[in-house]
Design a binder for these strands. Structure first.
Lengths: 195, 195
DNA sequence: ACCTGAACACCGTTCAAGT
DNA sequence: ACCTGAACACCGTTCAAGT
């Protein structure tokens, strides 16, 4: 039918991404679909594919917003330095996952098909978190390589505890228990590297 | 059409689960479908739903086989005791994930819709792994509660490192690097709890 | 009693046909 | 040049109709 041009390409992208965020937030990642977004913004499925390369590309454009917000939330709540900063970051991460479970879990429920690598623009955003954590480890060890290793180890570990905890695979209940395990992790790990 | 009775209910279940395992192993979880399984075993989609409660129930019956095999593999390769046992378990876990990536990742790519809890028969199998790890921690701490906390912390952490590592979100390459991070984790964490 | 397969209500993806 | 929406090839789920 008609070329509507009610909205510019950029406006359409923003509308689609916002509508997608809303669906994930309210109904969970498993209930997200590109067709549902199209219906919600009053366009057809063809328009979505006109704007995004593929279903995965669309999802990544939604998830990167969550990633940025999460990163911002963590940075905001990290007021101390060194060891305290690391504890604050972990607590904020858990809080974000708890408050916005559907959006947080969409970050990990979406898996690229087979072994397709993440596009650079998304990958960079992931790396930013490690840089942030790494900078605070630098204040503790003063050894760039050790700080990098420690920040990756701690961050991935916290994520694992959070994920298994949130999905009921740790036989623990609530964010408080998750916090206890990450506390145990950080406390003992930091003791270890300071020996 | 016809009531075929070529196979008993149990035989059908086994055929379906085996066919499902094969698809996941060779084509990855994203390419699995109940209809594909039906085609592969020469039955119709109706038969699959006759045998399993739902799509999720079907997947859990496939995944529990993987879970049992993984558990067996880890137990087989754990010949030492105490701290060495824990290191062996972690190495075996990484090895299993590496050798059988598609089946291992299906364990985590499958997420129950919204907040449906895992059925008891599946949940129990998950707990067995923690019991196994926990028993070896008991040899180190002699404190049941501390051992439980340590085993959950370590196991969930190892899983997180493995998952982010395998999906390219840690900016590291290969199983060797993953092993380095888990080594760092275990070494420092154990130092910490022994202080 | 058991199994089928058509029917239903969805998907992601493509692209000829319209303006 | 841009957008549509029909068409294609799939899904999971249900259940009346067959044997």
């Amino acid at each position: 039918m008609a070329r509507r041009s009610d909205h510019s390409r950029d406006e359409l992208r923003e509308m689609a991404v916002n509508a997608g965020q809303e669906i994930i937030k309210n109904e969970g990642f498993s209930n997200f679909s590109a067709r549902k977004v199209a219906r919600n913004i009053g366009y057809t499925i063809g328009t979505i594919y006109n704007i995004f390369e593929s279903h995965d590309d669309f999802i990544l454009h939604i998830n990167i917003i969550t990633l940025r917000e999460m990163c911002g939330f963590i940075a905001e709540n990290t007021t101390e330095t060194g060891e305290d900063a690391i504890k604050q970051m972990v607590s904020s991460y858990i809080k974000f996952a708890q408050n916005d479970y559907n959006r947080w879990s969409a970050l990990f429920e979406h898996v690229m098909p087979n072994n397709t690598p993440l596009p650079d623009w998304y990958d960079e955003e992931v790396k930013k978190i490690f840089l942030l954590v790494g900078s605070h480890f630098m204040a503790i060890t003063n050894d760039a390589e050790a700080a990098q290793m420690a920040s990756r180890t701690i961050w991935a570990s916290v994520h694992g505890i959070c994920q298994l905890g949130m999905t009921g695979k740790l036989d623990i209940i609530g964010a408080q228990s998750i916090q206890e395990l990450t506390d145990s992790l950080i406390e003992n790990y930091l003791k270890g590297i300071k020996l």
